[in-house]
Design a protein around this nucleic acid. Structure first.
Lengths: 234, 234
DNA sequence: AATGCTTATATATATAGACATAACCGGCCG
DNA sequence: CGGCCGGTTATGTCTATATATATAAGCATT
């Protein structure tokens, strides 16, 4: 096990280091040898060792500090990565047919909770949209969205009857900042009807707020049809 | 804007490239200049440019193929990263006091759905645990767990009355493979009682299966107390 | 005891040059 | 015309080396 031969790639080195962590050769909280020493052991260079250790640190196995050295993390805080594709892609990638429908469009003064949540002045006009996304004509996602027109006045004249605000926004507004939450909500009457389920049913829900250079742009609540699960492997 | 001066760090280069993507100087689907050309423009080296572009690709902005070049992705598939800490840490980090309690421990033949789900032989004995995690004595998470003892016989003699299976497992078993799902479930009577809520309430739920070298090790269902949301910023 | 300076050291990043590898592309051959 | 086959080229990776920077730790000063 862990046979350091010559000409090891940074991948090989990553694997050897991981093995040693797993086999407790380098125990949690212990300090690894310096990059220079490891480079010598693996008859490689410090650059290559650096890349290996840097990536392992990014993956949550190691903690690195200048001068202090590289330390094995005791509780490997593994990081789950979820890609957040557009609904359209999420549906078409499974081979299903995607269909979009606009349910409601309105310009209205921001409700108090929205003002507070997104930090916009009380009573400022916002664009409110409700839409549905279908996969093979079965309800897939019910979207409730608010858009603050201040930073993007064109949004008020955009046509959302044929394609969703998401499509439009990613084209127009390169957001700089994003908050994403997942939670479980109880279906109210509207949600239940659109998702073809019973009021009170548990609904997997995503909430997404984006900013552009500090200015709030949009808040979206995405209600997924019952049975939806967000899955990742690592 | 985007003033390429000399001695730019890989961070600077990343920023300039990002700016150019946002300002559509490099439009979606278009090809970037080659690393060599960019290195010249930024009066830097190919190595540095390479790191900048590589990281931007990892972050989901670019797609890179040998010979084919580096392309701007039209729908930036941004990747949300959630760290999955131990419950204990998740609670203590907010300053709350963590308390653990074992609810039930039993060795039983694997139920059919579990056999199927984890690909273990029908009727094989598995360890079944139910436990509670409290934050400041308020219910935080209800954990239902199955452990396959085949690859780790010691688990049958481990003491789970004082600390949770999670703590034990991360110490003993370096899993190699993990499937993690989030979904919304409806609280049944047991879940409702332990989480101090009403049966039928929506519960944010995580399901986690881990393997060790292809062998299934454990499946955990984690039911979070009402109001829980999993949040990330990027 | 607290603060500030110095130094040693480990990581962070940059440079330059080389070879490896995948893939586009144009031309040759059947 | 179609398919195979190299040549070309952009990225992938490694080597070797150098400089920058953060910081732990020791020592001196307030």
């Amino acid at each position: 096990m862990a046979a350091p031969r010559a000409n090891m790639s940074y991948r090989d080195i990553k694997q050897v280091v991981l093995d040693r962590i797993h086999n407790k050769i380098w125990a949690p909280d212990s300090l690894l040898p310096s990059e220079t020493d490891l480079a010598e052991e693996f008859s490689s260079t410090r650059t290559t060792v650096n890349r290996a250790l840097r990536e392992l640190a990014e993956e949550g196995y190691l903690e690195r500090k200048r001068k202090a050295g590289t330390r094995v993390l005791n509780a490997p805080v593994r990081k789950a990565q979820f890609s957040i594709p557009l609904v359209r892609d999420e549906i078409t990638e499974t081979g299903s047919e995607y269909r979009y429908a606009l349910v409601e469009r309105a310009v209205m003064p921001a409700p108090a909770w929205l003002s507070a949540r997104m930090n916009i002045p009380q009573g400022r006009d916002v664009l409110h949209l409700r839409c549905m996304h279908y996969a093979d004509n079965a309800p897939f996602q019910y979207e409730v969205r608010w858009i603050v027109p201040d930073s993007i006045p064109e949004v008020l004249t955009a046509d959302f009857s044929r394609s969703g605000p998401n499509d439009w926004l990613v084209q127009k507004v390169p957001f700089t900042n994003l908050e994403l939450s997942f939670l479980a909500t109880k279906a109210d009457q509207a949600v239940a009807e659109f998702l073809d389920t019973q009021a009170g049913d548990p609904i997997f829900t995503a909430e997404r707020i984006t900013w552009l250079r500090g200015q709030p742009v949009t808040l979206a609540k995405l209600f997924f049809a019952p049975g939806y699960r967000m899955t990742t492997h690592l």
